[in-house]
């Protein structure tokens, strides 16, 4: 039985490779449901009430796909259909995109109102990890 748990844990650890990051000064507790609401435009502020600016990795990036499926529970096509409904009706705009982990880390480290996600292996001490998927 121990072996089974061990394997289970190992497999979970192996796939937990998207880290959601904020500025080190950000003291908000941010759970998976809040992340989903921020990245689908349903919530426009951190739990402490301050404005949030979500940033995502560009479409096609494997980490981006992983984030879509784990954090938002949507394929990239479903996510695109979701945003089409908001964009073409003036009800919302999708998060801005950056092309690399390095760019994301730089932006989030410099802006207290930003939230982003990167490959867990890329995380540095300049940002704070609030959740991993």
């Amino acid at each position: 039985m121990k072996l089974v748990y061990g394997l289970l844990f190992a497999s979970m650890a192996a796939t937990a490779d998207v880290s959601v990051i904020v500025h080190p000064s950000n003291a908000s507790t941010i759970d998976a449901s809040t992340i989903e609401k921020i990245y689908t435009g349903k919530v426009k502020a951190f739990p402490d009430g301050s404005k949030v600016t979500p940033i995502r990795l560009a479409e096609g990036n494997p980490i981006s796909e992983e984030f879509n499926s784990k954090a938002l529970n949507k394929s990239s096509s479903q996510l695109k259909a979701y945003w089409s409904k908001l964009i073409f009706t003036g009800k919302g705009t999708p998060p801005d995109e950056v092309n690399s982990d390095a760019e994301m880390l730089k932006l989030v480290a410099a802006n207290p109102d930003h939230i982003g996600f990167v490959s867990s292996s890329a995380v540095t001490g300049d940002v704070k990890v609030v959740h991993s998927f």
């Binding site: 695109k80 259909a81 089409s84 409904k85 073409f88 009706t89 009800k91």
Partner: peptide, 10 residues
């Protein structure tokens, strides 16, 4: 209604 023209959305 709002995205009637946006075939990709449905």
């Amino acid at each position: 209604s709002d995205f009637l023209d946006v075939g990709y959305a449905y």
